[in-house]
């Protein structure tokens, strides 16, 4: 083989002119300069810079990699438990757990169903729902003020569905020893949220709720969701997810719903959740 290769070196040189002719035929009819950057006539002041730029472009090679993805997900399912924390807390705060089931229709398109529970551990023990933020507590205790009732809604649970699209992908390398693939995805969907509203007067260890707005009254509201996240795959079955999702909820407290309210109130609330979890692909 070596002899042959050596022979090829010399033999191919002999055919160089013919090869060039063929190339000429291939490019006939094309404007050879169309895809090239013509060298502009430089003025005296910009000459050194132009010369440098020319040197840079003259040596530019077009080098790329097209390689099969190491982990394919099209047609696969993904289960993803996550922890979630509201990040735009003003008057209420939510902490919880979510579980998502995802079907990857294509490599970059997926559908997701998610269910989540929010809860907190108060003096009375664990319970469903959110909690008043520090600001709300401070307003109430130091200023004897309270926000509009509509801003104090808490959400014990939610169920949602969304479509995901991954427009970008990337990879990370740790000293050439570990390689992780990730993709950035955007999602849009809808959800149903459970509602609860605490009484302004709390008398004991157990939380008191406005009549008809307790955690087991199953008051609900619909929401739309927008989000985005990063999904890292370390193997073909395991990954991690980081996500931010904005649930937009139209909320209202109508006349008569709440006895101690000043009046009806309406709001469009953005519940922004930061989520992190693991993904199991199968």
């Amino acid at each position: 083989m070596k002899k042959l290769l050596l022979f090829v070196t010399l033999a191919t040189l002999g055919t160089a002119a013919r090869a060039a002719d063929e190339e000429e035929k291939d490019t006939a009819g094309e404007d050879a300069s169309a895809e090239e950057t013509p060298a502009d006539e430089p003025d005296a002041s910009s000459a050194p810079a132009a010369a440098e730029a020319e040197a840079a472009t003259a040596t530019e090679e077009t080098i790329f990699v097209v390689q099969g993805k190491p982990f394919l997900v099209a047609g696969k399912f993904e289960l993803s438990p996550q922890i979630a924390q509201s990040v735009n807390d003003s008057f209420t705060s939510h902490t919880g757990l979510t579980a998502s089931g995802i079907y990857h229709l294509k490599e970059n398109v997926a559908f997701e169903l998610t269910g989540g529970l929010f809860g907190w551990w108060d003096v009375g023990g664990p319970r469903l729902g959110g909690r008043d933020s520090e600001l709300t507590v401070e307003l109430r205790e130091k200023e004897s003020l309270a926000p509009e009732r509509v801003k104090l809604y808490q959400f014990p649970w939610f169920l949602g569905g969304d479509a995901q699209w991954s427009p970008l992908y990337g990879k990370v390398s740790v000293h050439d020893l570990a390689l992780g693939q990730f993709n950035l995805y955007l999602s849009v969907g809808a959800a149903a949220f459970g509602l609860q509203l605490e009484s302004l007067t709390q008398g004991g260890a157990q939380k008191a709720y406005v009549t008809g707005f307790g955690p087991y009254d199953f008051r609900t509201t619909l929401a739309t969701s927008f989000g985005g996240g990063l999904r890292f795959y370390f193997t073909d079955w395991l990954g991690v997810r980081f996500e931010v999702r904005d649930y937009v909820l139209p909320l209202s407290v109508r006349e008569g719903d709440v006895e101690d309210a000043d009046g009806p109130s309406f709001d469009v609330t953005n519940l922004v959740l930061g989520q992190a979890g693991v993904s199991f692909i199968f």
């Binding site: 895809e35 090239e36 950057t37 013509p38 060298a39 020319e54 472009t57 003259a58 040596t59 530019e60 077009t62 790329f64 990699v65 097209v66 390689q67 099969g68 993805k69 394919l72 099209a74 294509k106 490599e107 970059n108 992908y169």
Partner: peptide, 19 residues
């Protein structure tokens, strides 16, 4: 003559990555 970077090549489908 200067040489510009050539356009992005053909990528067969979404099971491939381009860099």
């Amino acid at each position: 003559q200067s040489r510009a970077r050539q356009p992005r090549p053909f990528i067969p489908d979404d099971t491939f990555q381009f860099w």
